[in-house]
Design a protein around this nucleic acid. Sequence first.
DNA 1: GGACTAATCCCGG
DNA 2: CCGGGATTAGTCC
Length: 751
Amino acid sequence: MQLTRMEGGGAEGGLIGAGELVDQHLVPGVLDGFDESRSGSENLDAASGDDQSIMRGEGRAPKRKKYHRHTPQQIQELEAFYKECPHPDEKQRLELSRRLNLETRQVKFWFQNRRTQMKTQIERHENMLLKKENDKLRFEQAAMKNALRNPLCTSCGGPVVSPELPFDEQTLKSENARLRDELTRICLLTEKFLGRPISSIASSLTQRSTTSTLDFSLGNIGFQGLNSMDHALSSGLDMSLLGSAVSLPEAPVDKSFIVQLAVTAMDELMKMAAVNTSLWSSSSDGVKEVLNFEEYLATFPPTIGPKPNNFVLDASRDTGLVCLNSLALVETFMDLNQWVSVFPSLVARASTTTVISPGLDGSWNGTLQLMQAELQVLSPLVPLRQVKFLRFCKKHEEGKWAVVDLSIDAVHEGSVALSPFSLCRRLPSGCVIQEMPDGFSKVTWIEHTQYDENVVHPLYRRLLGSGMGFGAKRWLASLQRHCEGLAALMASGEPVENPSGMTASGRKSMFKLARRMSDNFCSGVCASLMSKWERLYPGNVGEESVQLMSRKTVDSPGEPSGIVLSATASVWMPVARQRLFDFLRDKRYRSDWDILSNGGPIQEVVRISKGPDPGNCVSLLRCDTASPSQEMLILQETWTDAASSLIVYAPVDTPAIQSVLGGGDSTYVALLPSGFALYPDPDPAQTGNPAAGCLLTAGFQILVNELPTAKLTVDSVTTVEHLIHCTIEKIHQALDCAAPASRSQNPVPHE
DNA sequence: GGACTAATCCCGG
DNA sequence: CCGGGATTAGTCC
């Protein structure tokens, strides 16, 4: 809580009227000061009178028990001094006491208390970490125990069957009967969802399996699969279809039910994406489309049950041109690695749990898989979204494809089970791709989620509510930016603007390194249970307070070894996103805020463009210092699109980066990224607020100790907090906008 | 009742 | 005498 105490200083005028906007837990000193001046003044002890009475020696004798606190100014000054020097000597204390009108003993006590307080705080953090570690271990242990109890086959994910299970004829017969049933159902459904007769599929599959292009090794079919094959062969049916009915890892699951779900979701997506539909109407400002919820409910039966009461819904649709052909786009969505790489800063991580049905004809058409992913908005104030979903890809006609996602945590007895712990669910969402001439595609994106708004800080609720946070616009914008980057990379014309020139492999290496830097930065902002970051301060953080996470690295290539501290804070800025973005990436203004650059001039040594927008590029900056030996190089990646902007940078080792520029391997280049993520703060027209603000997240990662075994110290925590507050403050000043306290004018959305 | 903080008390160097 | 640990008292939530 000491994190934000300094904010109060010099801005009381702005705070008095804004009491309810200030998180009282965070700034007790500020509020207490006012309380005193309002109510506790009967005894000449108002905030200002009190010290003078001490100085005059009057109130001394009657053993003043009257409770009082130092004034905010005093505390702020003390705090500031403490940051620089937690152990002031006699002289410094005297000076402080004189300046603050405090007794020397009071100053002494204050520092004494401050130090012990800090110590207990650190202790508490350590306890927290240990407890978390303990919990994690216990959880792992439980998971392992569980895994031992229900072993799964490593190659197919199916249940392991003990070898002594009786293979009597009766069992086989009844099993066959069950499978025959299932097969018929699946055939019917397959016809329905592929829109063509089963015979052609069967024959194409047969053809494929004979030419052995289809991976159908026995290893992919579990015990049940063998059984099925047996049955299929004996009944003269093409067995391949059963391959598309691989069991989910969870118990016996009715596959046809899942297929049915996917078909229904696809149907819904297509209707939602249709051009002439009354499901959407344009908003009052005509900028975006709004879902007609009544109509929606009337049109579609709920695929995954009704909306939980405490959830709000977020439905958005956006259409745009993308410079990539439809096949390549489909590949982008269906190939896990590509998918993750197209949406950096949006998809934190993802995995494919099970392939329920592989594609047909060697294409992605008909692919149905179970996936999980973590989605993020880059701010500690917006918790990461963990989603498990079905992804189903279907080719509707030549050049027209669709990929639909649907939240599904588990399937039991023919109904969808959603985890009660999940904070978000995705209703049929995804995109429809229509191939256009010249290698372009028209993409219509539907993003429909229901989520728990309470876990999101009010500052970010408007962003999420506008569909810009996790909505269609952000997905599409990210996709477009990615494709522009691809085009730039492919372009024959040399996009490098530095005279020294650069080889294609050099560019590739630089992109790869920049990519790792940005990913690293993003992972330090949003706390994921899966990541290696440990959160220091538990619970939610508030606006302008710093979220701290730490991690230990040992012998990890590309990372400095030791303890790394990541500090992140989000604030509202009273300037448009574009202006802030341009400011932050302009090397002329860099010394205004970049403490790292030491105020020296900055030169752009290398610049590799990633698209038509000048804001999308990877560059190498040189900070000139007095002595050439201290010259420092900074790798920087910036990007911007219709929904968000990002600036990430990290100091790099000169010889290492020279090797990368020449196309060398970047794996061992150590990086500690810092940077900013910017989102617009959509101003709902009805408030009439003229301020076009934006949301800024600043993040720093610093190496606090090179020994991984070392403990985090108070000093390093204080330093990094100071760094982040200072940087934000400097940005404020440089942009000549009001100090942070003026955020009281920032209307907090739907409170 | 717990968290926070200014102030005391007490002890070892 | 100083600094640090333990403790206390007043206050707020």
